[in-house]
Every structure is written in C-alpha cells, then in structure tokens.
Design a protein around this nucleic acid. Structure first.
Lengths: 234, 234
DNA sequence: CCGCCTTCTCGTCGGCGTGAGGCTATCGGG
DNA sequence: CCCGATAGCCTCACGCCGACGAGAAGGCGG
C-alpha cells in the first residue's frame, strides 16, 4: 500500500451557552509542542475505534457528558485538517467534531489538565490550527440553527421559549423579537412539546415549560440577517 | 506520539449532469481488494500535500478537468471515513471530496483504468464503503442547491435558464415550473449575468444566454419538497 | 406562405410566512 | 396598590412563491 502514514486525532469543538454567551471548552496543554497554550480537547483514534467512537469517548472524558449531555446534546463531524506542517512532531490528520451541550454545572472536575469554558469571542491564539477548527465549528453551529431544531441541544431537558431564544441570540449575536420567535417555534410541528408545568419565581408572567420534540428540520428555515449577497462567503 | 498510524486517502465523488440525469464518475479497480469492482476515483495523500491538494490533483488526473472543470466546477470536502474494517489491507482513513463539473465531452481518455460516468440511480455495490460516501455526496449536492448558486457549477460557461433548471430537476428528481424558476433565478442579484447573445437552432423562442454571477448564496433559499418533518434525518 | 407547435418570457392572482407592533395576563417589588 | 417586566395572543402589511394565463419568437409541415 502506497502513501505516507499519519497519526489520526480527533479534536472537539464543544460549544455551550453560558450567561447569554457562546462558550467553547478548552484545555491548557501540559506538554510540548504549544506547552501551556490553550487548545481544543482531543485525542488519538484507537485501534478498534471509528472516528465517532473516539469523539464520543473524548467528549465523555472531558465533560462527564454522560449525564445529561448525551441525551440532549449533539455530536457531528466537522471536517478533516491535515496541512503538512500543522504539527511539528510529524504528519497528523485531525478530524474536527462539533458538540453542542446544555450548560453543564461545571466542566472542571476532570482530574487531568486544566479545562474551562471560555467565550468564543475572547479566544484566539490556540495551539496548532485550532483557531481554524474553532471558527469552522462556530460557523457550522450558526448555520445549523437556521434550518434545524438543534438549538434545543443547548438547552436542558425542559426549557422555556425564552431560553431557546437566548440560545439563538447568543449564537448569532443578534436580537430577535420575542413575539415573532414564539410564534415561529410553537407553530413548527414537532419542535416543542408543551409540558404541564410552568416556571414560578421569576419576574413577569410564568412561562410554559417545553421539551424537545421529534422534529429535526425547520421548514421553512429561520433566516438570520441576509448578511450581504454576492462575493466570497468568507 | 501515541496512536496508531493510518494510511490517508482521498476519494472523489465527481458529479455531473448528463442527459437530464445525475451521473457519478467511477473507475473499475484493477487490483485487489475488490478487483474489477467499481469504485470512486481516489488516491493517497503525498508527503507534501494537504487534503485539498490531493483532491485537486486526482480530479485533474481522472478527468482532465483542468480545461473547463477548474473554472466552472466546484470542489469541497465531504467528510472522513475510517471504520476499523473498511479496508482489509489495514487501517485506512479516507477523506471524501465532492466535485461538481459541467458535462465534460468524454471522461475516458485516461490511459489508466477504465473510467466512466454512470447514473447515480444505477450505482450500487461499490468497493469499500464507497456506497456510503457516494450517498453522502449526493445528499450534500442536493442540499447545497437549495441555498447556494452551485447549480451553475454543473453548467458550461454560458448557459440558459432552462439548462440551469434541468440541473435542478436532475439532481432533485423533481419537476419545476419553468416560469416560477425563471422569475426566481433572474431576480436573485448576482446569480446570473445576461450576455448579448441568444441561442438559435432549437425549437421555440431563442433563449437568453447567461454567465455565472458573483453570488454564492441564495437568500431566501429555493426549497425542494419539505419531504416530511420529524424523525431521524436518515 | 400559412397555420401550428414549441419554448421563452412577462404578468396576475391568492395564500402563507414574517417583521412590526398593539394588547392582555400574571408575576415580583417598591 | 400601582408599576415594571415578562409571557403569550392577535392584527396588519409586505414580500415571496405556487398556480396559471398570455404574449413573443422561433422551427416545421402542408
């Protein structure tokens, strides 16, 4: 068999919404190269694993996501990154994976390296080409909110329409009219399933609680600003 | 550096529209495993290449696409495939790439193995997991026609609105009203640039010739049948 | 040469989804 | 007790799109 040999890793873009901000899970590297730089969590693919297996294993290991994450959350492949010089140790191909999680109580009880959720706006200068992978992951997440019901993956099992709207506003960095948003999501069949309970304790009228419905697609999609036509997409 | 080592290949899903049918470029394997089976064209990533370089090199090698393909065509990454048992020779990760080309005159003057465009409807039983990669590529192409101007990548440098509509109809396997389609594509800024010439010789009123415009996105998108909501996507 | 057919192109009409915004219900707090 | 804040319902106007009519402009057969 011809061809050079690669080490194959999986790097995770784990996104969540905290305090109305889109956050990403990062780990501080404890070894060279890029020692003490922030990096995306990840690891190498084992002998008997498929790529998705590795991604799921790393996700659980880094977040303890087995509890609620695996139920509500979402995990999908982003793309492959294999520039010849992306890793000084040799030829490494990294498969980026995108994970969307509800705001977990605290992601740091991992005994290993320092891990933290940081606002994506503040993140730059990651190790390797992880800035690129992160940018691709954020863009993928933004695009998918338009035509899927994936925003619910950022929410706990039960949530209000306002919770869901704040997810859109945080990811897109826009403001959405609460009344039109409510009409849109509640009138899409299978998006939201109302529960019998309401939330008390907040200000204002107590909102209805919903659960995720079986729908995965939004027809028609919910479009963000038609940012400008023509020219390169960036 | 931990982790097992992989051979890394690039496999191409090269799509074109011929005789109002979506076709895919296949090669007949001349060696084991899967000898004499049809497979996607592809090859291994070389030492100094990034993944896109390999894909572009293979595309030119297999189609001679340098002439018109590279100008009008389109090439993008599909995803990574690395199931542990996908290749009996050992651990191979394959990056799928999707290429959209105008109908090239004839793709067979390659001195190498037998190559042919075959209608995707008739294709099954490809080597390795290429059936899966092909299905993913076709689905990606179908989805992208909805919200991008990529359909023009299937057309020669100058084409009519009817040519473009036949691309949509072939890829989606639907029928589209010619009058509404014309209104949509001609009213989208930057999609089509009219030329001074018209086509003569055919039946009916001579149509206007257009060139691709700079627009890449369709806002709002052109939606195909809302195929059915809810449930898993595949 | 003259209908007739085909295809391209433009217009019309009605329904639906969405942005904008008014209004009521129902809470906490001063 | 009143007020501000939030949730939820409703109306209206506009634009896009599906359905479809009709004219424009060519080829073709009698």
């Amino acid at each position: 068999m011809r061809g050079n040999l690669f080490a194959v890793a999986v790097d995770l873009v784990v996104l969540t919404v905290r305090h109305d901000q889109l956050n990403v899970l990062l780990v501080r590297r404890g070894e060279r190269p890029y020692e003490s730089h922030w990096a995306l969590p990840g690891g190498f693919v084992r002998a008997d694993e498929d790529l998705g297996d590795t991604a799921a294993r790393e996700l659980v290991a880094q977040t303890g996501a087995a509890t609620q994450g695996a139920v509500q959350g979402h995990l999908e492949q982003l793309g492959g990154y294999a520039a010849p010089d992306r890793d000084p140790r040799g030829r490494v191909l990294s498969m980026g994976y995108l994970a969307l999680l509800p705001d977990v109580p605290d992601p740091e009880p991992t005994g290993g390296p320092t891990a933290a959720f940081l606002p994506v706006e503040d993140v730059y200068g990651l190790a390797f080409d992880h800035d690129t992978i992160l940018a691709d992951g954020v863009e993928r997440a933004r695009a998918k909110l338009e035509y899927t019901t994936l925003a619910a993956a950022f929410c706990p099992p039960e949530f209000t329409v306002t919770d869901l709207r704040r997810v859109y506003e945080a990811v897109w960095r826009t403001e959405i009219d609460p009344r039109n948003f409510q009409r849109k999501v509640t009138s899409t069949p299978g998006f939201l399933i109302p529960t019998a309970t309401r939330v008390t304790g907040g200000r204002g009228r107590p909102p209805q609680l919903f659960r995720r419905g079986p729908a995965t697609a939004l027809h028609p999609p919910m479009l963000r600003e038609p940012v400008a036509l023509a020219h390169a997409t960036t």
